[in-house]
Design a protein around this nucleic acid. Sequence first.
DNA 1: CGCTGTGTTGACAGGTCTCAATATAAGTGG
DNA 2: CCACTTATATTGAGACCTGTCAACACAGCG
Lengths: 235, 235
Amino acid sequence: MHRLALGRFTDFIDISDEERAALDAIAGPPCDVPARGVLHRQGSEIDRVYWLGEGWVSSGVATPGGLQQIFKIHLPGDFVGVPSMAVTRAFETLTALTPVVVRPILVEDIGKLFAQQSRLAAVLFLCVQYERVMLMDRLTSIGRSRAIARLAALLLNLYDRLRSIDPAQPPTVDLPLTQSELGDLVGITAVHVNRKLQELERQGLVARQRNRVDLVDIEGLRRLADLPQYQLRRD
Amino acid sequence: MHRLALGRFTDFIDISDEERAALDAIAGPPCDVPARGVLHRQGSEIDRVYWLGEGWVSSGVATPGGLQQIFKIHLPGDFVGVPSMAVTRAFETLTALTPVVVRPILVEDIGKLFAQQSRLAAVLFLCVQYERVMLMDRLTSIGRSRAIARLAALLLNLYDRLRSIDPAQPPTVDLPLTQSELGDLVGITAVHVNRKLQELERQGLVARQRNRVDLVDIEGLRRLADLPQYQLRRD
DNA sequence: CGCTGTGTTGACAGGTCTCAATATAAGTGG
DNA sequence: CCACTTATATTGAGACCTGTCAACACAGCG
């Protein structure tokens, strides 16, 4: 039994050796992308998704107003670029935040996968539903809570996901993101990000040095973020 | 060839008679729900999703802060309650906004569907991806645009979807929603909804009478909403 | 007829954005 | 290694958007 990471903290699902092999078979060779490199840009033609092996990737769009909205920070193990499958031209821009290793998977091969591995197909289906749930969470977060709570939620989210990849992960997040990009994530201005980070620090919830954020008072952060907790359906 | 409506304006996909029959076979008998009735409440156990035949259904959650966030207004043809499949307890509360007719589909039967109708499974997969894209759209809308633009976008969205169900749909939306619920949709206060609706009216973009909104200047509304347009991948 | 939910209006407070200036860090080429 | 350039972070002042609270109007409904 292997484990397949497709999304967030707890979203791991056991898959059989055969299923793992089927995935392995359709995934192309590992491919390096330098930091700040672009996997694909919104509006371009798409024939593949990517299986993220190493590094961080952001998924977002540029808005007509000149601003940007980042939907998700992808961590190792994630499939990236999947939402763009549904439309003919890429919906999102995928940017490497760090040096990255990905394996491409052609969209047509995923079709074959559905035909041959129906259980795996169902699992993928559920994973996407889970992503949908996470997006709804973001939506309520942005729509119904303050900037500082959203920042806290973001930090916790990243920390929890890093820890689910490596249980030894210390309570620290080393962000390869500018404050401007943090703002694009939580839907506020870079200037405001700065002020609210300072407020988190003043309240003793985090400590900062350069791009590193230490989560000093995790319980306090969770209280501030006020996150719901979900339990996944395991087949 | 039949057409299967799963989401928004343009998201129709041709399915074969056999596939249609397979869907029909697992769907339970039509079931009436009165206006303001609840299909399921967040946190309750879930074993089914619903195929909406007639009426409007809202999908949303109550936030810890006492507010509410509505994710989507479902129109006839939509599958509702699907995101809750991914978690053991219902993520969302489904409320009938009008008298409603639904056909229940058991989650376990969807598993069978995946095994037997792999093409249909792939289509469902893409539909969910599309829903994900729509959610990302909402996210950027709420995160990066003004309340008035979001209201305009909401009205256009409903109008476009109504028109895709019935091409004869006049440029009018009869909302079975209170202003408070409109606020829950776009992430603002009921009071603010009121003011911004008046502003839309003052600008000559809409006319209002009771719960009915006439889209007077659709082009103007689209300019204000500043929506992107997508083209769906047709298998 | 009085309830009750909803819509409307006003005054005010607070959050967030914009613009602009400065400080700091990170690169770059000499 | 240093001077220079550029990107990012920080800070302040002011305007705008949105939320809160409270009052009132209006409709449907018993």
